[in-house]
Design a protein around this nucleic acid. Sequence first.
DNA 1: AACGAACGTGTAATTTAATTACATTAAGTC
DNA 2: GACTTAATGTAATTAAATTACACGTTCGTT
Lengths: 311, 311
Amino acid sequence: MPADSTETNGVDLPPQKGQPGVADVISALYHHDGKLATQEQRVANYVKDHLEDISAMTIAELAGQCNVSTPTVIRFCRTLGCDGYREFKLRLAQNLAVSMQYLSADPKAGPTAGDSAIDQILNAINATANVMRRQIDPLVLDCAKAALLDTRHLLFAGIGGGSSTVAQEAANRFFRLGIPSMSTSDSYTLQMRAATLKEGDVLFLVSASGEADAIIGAAKIANNYGATTICITKPGTKLADVCSVPILVDLPEDRDIHKPTSSRYIHMIIVDALAMSVAQEMAHETTENLRRIRASLTAYHGRTGPQPLGD
Amino acid sequence: MPADSTETNGVDLPPQKGQPGVADVISALYHHDGKLATQEQRVANYVKDHLEDISAMTIAELAGQCNVSTPTVIRFCRTLGCDGYREFKLRLAQNLAVSMQYLSADPKAGPTAGDSAIDQILNAINATANVMRRQIDPLVLDCAKAALLDTRHLLFAGIGGGSSTVAQEAANRFFRLGIPSMSTSDSYTLQMRAATLKEGDVLFLVSASGEADAIIGAAKIANNYGATTICITKPGTKLADVCSVPILVDLPEDRDIHKPTSSRYIHMIIVDALAMSVAQEMAHETTENLRRIRASLTAYHGRTGPQPLGD
DNA sequence: AACGAACGTGTAATTTAATTACATTAAGTC
DNA sequence: GACTTAATGTAATTAAATTACACGTTCGTT
């Protein structure tokens, strides 16, 4: 294999976010998958099926498992943008460490000595966010955004502590854009309000389980009256099936019941991302609304200077 | 160095989450720090100061930098619980990959062309979290934790969309631990409830500005009746002056008013970290409460499997 | 169809990096 | 001071990764 093989890769990998200079070899692996030379594809297939084992294997072991030569493995690594097998192993381990942090949490493991509680929470949020980013479909987000841009009546709902908080916060974000936005966590009120929605309105539901009867019922009602139903939930659930724009994320839950759940942060991040996109798209109207809010609050409490707007 | 050095470590490191058999060498490094043999301590000092560089260095390079022999480096790695330098490098890279995600978030970097809205929100959270971690005083967190462990009456309050949500979420976290916990965002109710508190009770206030009259007034009332007042707020504010345990963070606000504010995530993270610490300290009582909650919810909705507990 | 170039692959040789064996020195205990 | 244990480094050895080169296959051009 000539030394210019890296120039013919066809892909110049950007650094992974948060990892200056460390490319994402997992993404590269899937990018090249199916388009590799015959023997290199055998390596790729084995690596995909044994991601967690690779970094502890010698190149001879991996080549043996795939029935290829060790230089073929090196060529494979170079196709993925690494200098050689050493770098490939290192990067794979790093990339996996980020994603795998809490996927198979061991309840017997306590906090490690050097991690503060805050570090543990932050680690959990970031690990879960990485899982979400691999799953989330940008096209669905675009659909949701389009619906939100058009709506004149926006109802958020979630039942249970975390989901109801996310719904409430969502309404707190969107009302500032001049969109009539409300939230409810009361299952009866939700059915009633859903029945008042019509075409062009949006019902936005948050449910980690995707199986709560009151939530699903409300989605069906709103659908019947022509409203757009958007939800943030798990794939393969009743709610996902019923909604017209399902934002699907299957988030790992920490087995340690003493730790607060990360998924509500992720749901909030998704809502915030939508709010930001909508705000930027309707910047003319938004800016005037936000100016009014700021002026009114300043008149009320007299404080100026940088602070969250009404938060 | 005899082969039984691992038996004299004094610490049997548990596997890190999600990585069976992969211990946290950073924690081990700090655990042994100051108690190592002379030359090994030189290696430890260098490693601490160059964590990000180590995994790309050969053992000869590292030994050269520390002016020690390569077998000394291997002994150092074995002291930390690794088989050799290869394993040490791999584990260090893995451990760092997780932490580096938020440590490298840059508050001064604007959104780049390829960043999705989600990337922008997440980067802002991580950047703000880095600011918080540099400011927050662990001793104050310990004081807050101690007060929370002892209390039989816990009242959270915040006024304004974000602060009131954090307060509500906080109560949602702490009631699960068997601590009678409530929240309010109604300024009148807050004064009334504050007046019912007494010694051993806790009033926990969330205020980004630290200058809201209703919040400060409630803190003064509760102080007068002997309750402990904890707050999350800005340094140098009236609220910071009035509370007995002020958790102080001066968080930057994004100048772009179209972007949702990050500080409410940070406040939630602080609350979650406290809730987790308290939960682990009173694990006996907590586990029973959480078991009851799970059993009751399952009886109510019939669903099992991993999901956020009641969220 | 024939030929040449490019690509893919593996064997063997070479290089690099890590580890072990052993000797020496330093520190601690009686 | 004598003896034992711990710490340390040099040199030799082993393990692992990489390179060089030869051969076979496929593709494109004449």
